[in-house]
Computed example of a mutant assay.
Amino acid sequence: MNQLTESGRNLARRLQDEHGIEHETTISMIKAVQAGNGTMAQFSTRELGYGQWMRGGMTMVSDMFNNALKTKVATICEQISGAMGRGETLFERLEPDDRITSGQEWWPTNLGKPGSSGSQNEMAYAVFPSARRLAVRIGSDVSVYDTGDHQITGVGQQQGASQTVTFTSQLGRLSVDDLKQVRP
């Protein structure tokens, strides 16, 4: 396990005191937000369940109608993100094996590691900020898009007869139909 810096220990204590969460949960959430570069997180803890968070307003938790839990998770992640945004180093060193991952990689390997990824039912997405690419999988079909000047900070998935996915960037909302599809 990686060692928290003094800044990381102080943040962990504040989170535990303010939100009444266990030390193990706190460490897991800090790792998840750090793995998402302070803008997103995927987490799975005994105490908070599993879910995703993206800065800008998207929070999904396994207990989907528990608004108090969504608010708690969003607040915790925002506080961790804020500390990172202020330049605080939270861990001495974050090992690649300690990163939170969503499972088997399904996107083209030449895209590298995504800044964020998520899935629900038969739909999945992976955002690659440095490559300016977005990969979307519906069933077994994978499409890759050029994100251009968009810096994707949020995602929304709608299930039902017409599964759709929309994204939020600094330029507003967009769908994959707004992006140019490219070869992987």
Rank of each mutant, 00 (worst) to 15 (best):
V61Y: 03
T45G: 02
M58A: 08
V61E: 05
E47D: 10
L69K: 03
S62M: 05
E47Q: 15
T45S: 05
T45P: 01
G51R: 03
K72D: 00
L48D: 03
K70C: 00
Q42D: 15
G57Q: 15
V73A: 06
Q34T: 15
Q34M: 12
M40R: 12
K70Q: 09
E47P: 06
G36R: 12
G56S: 13
G49V: 00
Q52E: 08
V73N: 08
V73R: 05
R55C: 01
N67V: 05
R55H: 12
M64Q: 13
N67R: 08
G38C: 07
N66I: 10
T59F: 01
S62I: 02
K70E: 06
G38P: 09
T39K: 09
A35R: 06
S44H: 13
I76K: 02
L69M: 02
N37V: 09
L69Y: 00
M54R: 06
M60H: 07
V73E: 07
G56M: 08
T75F: 01
W53P: 00
Q34E: 15
R55A: 04
L48P: 02
M54K: 06
T45L: 03
G38E: 11
G57V: 14
M64C: 05
T45I: 03
T39H: 07
G56D: 12
S44C: 13
L69V: 00
N37S: 14
G36I: 10
W53Q: 01
M54N: 09
W53M: 01
D63R: 14
G56Q: 10
T71G: 06
G56H: 11
M64T: 11
F43S: 05
M60G: 01
K70P: 01
